[in-house]
Amino acid sequence: MVDVKPLVDALVRTRRGPLAAGAALGGLALVAGLAARALRGPITPESAPAPAAPVVNEDEARLMLRAMVAATLADGMIDKDERQRLDAAVQASGLAKDGAAWLEAEIGDPVDLDTITDAVNTPEQATRIYSAVRLSVLADTLQEREFLKRLAEALDVPGEAVARIEGELAA
């Protein structure tokens, strides 16, 4: 089995925009931080706890990556820009051969929402999965936006948390 944490990390780091600076800490740390803030709501500097290391194990990272691929394929195709991001993430991860083979297999048989939700055990994990997918997908098609909506609903990610994630991505 391929260790996909570096691949998830690299894919999140390919995101463009204001949150990209946060990826300097690592893509998984960015996902964990975004999810934690989304669940807790705004925190004042005085009440903010010290940042913790991401609590993403290999199984969760694999589920994140599978959900990212499924979201990317929600519109039935991977366009040129999406393909370039995926290929760049594979190269940046250091898993070129094994990572590419694993990714191609996943693209050929993407996971469904039931499989994703069945593997999630806590609200925190659900929000991390949603955050990772939202960070990795540009949501530039109606089908991708609909997939994200269905994913949030299936994972029972609170509407306020989804709104906070969207707010941070738009900032």
Rank of each mutant, 00 (worst) to 15 (best):
R15E: 03
R15V: 14
R16Q: 15
L19Q: 04
A20I: 00
A21P: 03
G22V: 01
A23S: 14
A23Q: 05
A23H: 01
A23I: 10
A24S: 09
L25F: 15
L25W: 05
L25D: 07
G26P: 10
G26E: 02
L28A: 06
L28G: 04
A29S: 14
A29H: 07
A29Q: 04
A29R: 11
V31Y: 04
A32N: 11
G33Y: 00
L34G: 08
L34I: 04
A35E: 00
R37E: 08
R37L: 02
R37F: 11
R40K: 10
R40H: 12
R40G: 12
R40P: 01
I43V: 13
I43D: 02
T44Y: 10
S47R: 04
S47E: 12
A48Q: 08
A50Q: 02
A52S: 11
A53H: 08
A53G: 05
A53Y: 00
A53I: 05
E58Q: 14
R62F: 08
L63W: 06
L63E: 00
L63F: 10
M64G: 06
L65D: 04
R66D: 15
R66L: 06
R66I: 07
M68I: 15
A70E: 04
A70F: 05
A70H: 07
A71P: 13
T72E: 09
D75I: 13
D75H: 09
G76H: 11
G76V: 11
G76S: 09
M77R: 12
D79H: 14
D79P: 13
D79M: 05
K80I: 06
D81G: 08
E82N: 09
R83H: 07
Q84I: 12
R85K: 14
R85D: 10
L86E: 03
L86I: 15
A89P: 07
V90M: 11
V90A: 12
S93N: 11
S93A: 13
G94L: 12
L95P: 03
L95R: 15
L95E: 13
A96H: 14
A96S: 11
D98K: 10
D98W: 06
G99W: 15
A100N: 14
A100W: 13
A100T: 11
A101F: 09
A101N: 07
W102N: 07
A105M: 02
E106Y: 01
G108H: 03
D109S: 13
P110S: 05
P110T: 13
P110Y: 07
L113N: 10
D114P: 10
T115G: 02
T115C: 04
I116H: 08
D118K: 14
D118F: 06
V120D: 00
N121W: 00
T122W: 08
T122G: 00
P123C: 00
E124D: 10
E124A: 11
Q125N: 00
Q125K: 05
Q125M: 10
T127D: 01
T127R: 08
T127M: 03
I129C: 03
S131E: 00
S131M: 01
A132I: 10
V133M: 07
R134Q: 10
L135G: 08
L135H: 09
L135A: 02
V137L: 04
L138N: 05
A139W: 00
D140V: 07
